[in-house]
Design a protein around this nucleic acid. Structure first.
Lengths: 197, 197
DNA sequence: GTCTATACTCAGATAGAC
DNA sequence: GTCTATCTGAGTATAGAC
């Protein structure tokens, strides 16, 4: 399992706690993960955890902020490299699949944790910058006449709902082949549904 | 807010507790809902709750079992009324949208609660009968040559992932128009993606 | 079946030495 | 910055009267 925080500019013990939090929050859930669990998994003591993070909620927030920040950077890089709508869509899908296979815990935490339940003030995920970016790619395609005139949320649901659904099936163990094998079939199918005719 | 348990053959106080559990588990989450919360919301005492349900987990299981049983009955009725693949797909989507608008808490609890976290032995939702039924509709359509040859999980992700995504956007408040308004546009688009050519 | 009062557990958080 | 020891309170579940 790749360590997502390896290269970040964070103190060593913070990194270990964040990584343990990521793993345990995904595998057991936030509320089933006690501070003693984090101590045992990370090898960092209670005192040090509370020295680095105000409380358990703040730990989760820090984790989420770091993950989303990394995602934003990845997306920006990707959109800079591809400027055409279909290319962008295809490579976003590819990147989502790669992320899922390289950092399954990261994807599970971002996509499927019930953030509101343990971070009461967080904004809904679907209003976050990465999700807005996904939609904006389709919006631009629509303005250029490459995507048919249809409700943006509907187009978005087709284009990304299908990708996210396959990712979930994969993470839940119902689609065990490598996701990349389905990349072309899935993106082409979704594109048929939304492309201008 | 419609009460889902109105007509069920369950004692009155059980019904009240189940309804409160549904509402509170969805609005605050399972772990943020204490027994005192359930007492305050349902008007049923701690003692009576524990008389009716072994413990909090068993309450959640009973709730989930009742919801899934109702869903199975609805699906069976619907499939008996429509025998052609496209018809079945369209009416399943319609029913999912109707369920979401009539019983949003029910849909949220079924689709978006992290069941595993508070019911450790439950099977994954995507392996449950209702989800298998959704896939089997596409499988039959494929055998009859009405749906193109493609991986079943991919077809499924397109057909239902898009519907579930729009439902999620709606429940999260990003798509506020009535779902029914998007029914035709969404199902037709998804069908373009998967129909045989 | 329904209720009130209460026991027990353990997680979250702090204090304070090193 | 790191640790151990400890406190406190919330929350689950039970006992036992009605």
């Amino acid at each position: 399992m790749a360590n997502f925080f390896e290269e970040s500019d964070i103190s060593a013990s913070k990194k270990r706690v964040l990584n343990s939090a990521l793993v345990l929050f995904v595998e057991k859930g936030f509320f089933n993960t006690s501070i003693p669990d984090l101590v045992a998994h990370s090898g960092v003591s209670t005192g040090s955890i509370y020295h680095a993070f105000k409380d358990k909620e703040h730990l989760a927030r820090t984790l989420m902020d770091l993950l989303l920040a990394k995602v934003e950077v990845d997306q920006a890089t990707l959109l800079a490299a591809h400027r055409e709508c279909w290319q962008r869509y295809y490579h976003l899908a590819k990147w989502l699949f790669e992320m899922t296979e390289t950092f399954p815990h990261v994807m599970q935490f971002i996509l499927y944790a019930r953030h509101r339940e343990f971070m009461p003030t967080i904004q809904p995920l679907c209003s976050s910058k990465p999700f807005m970016t996904l939609r904006s790619v389709l919006e631009q395609g629509q303005q250029l006449g490459q995507i048919r005139e249809m409700d943006l949320m509907v187009a978005s649901s087709i284009a990304y709902g299908s990708i996210l659904r396959l990712i979930q099936l994969h993470l839940d163990g119902l689609a065990h082949e490598p996701l990349q094998e389905h990349l072309d079939e899935l993106t082409c199918a979704a594109w048929r549904a939304i492309k201008a005719d």
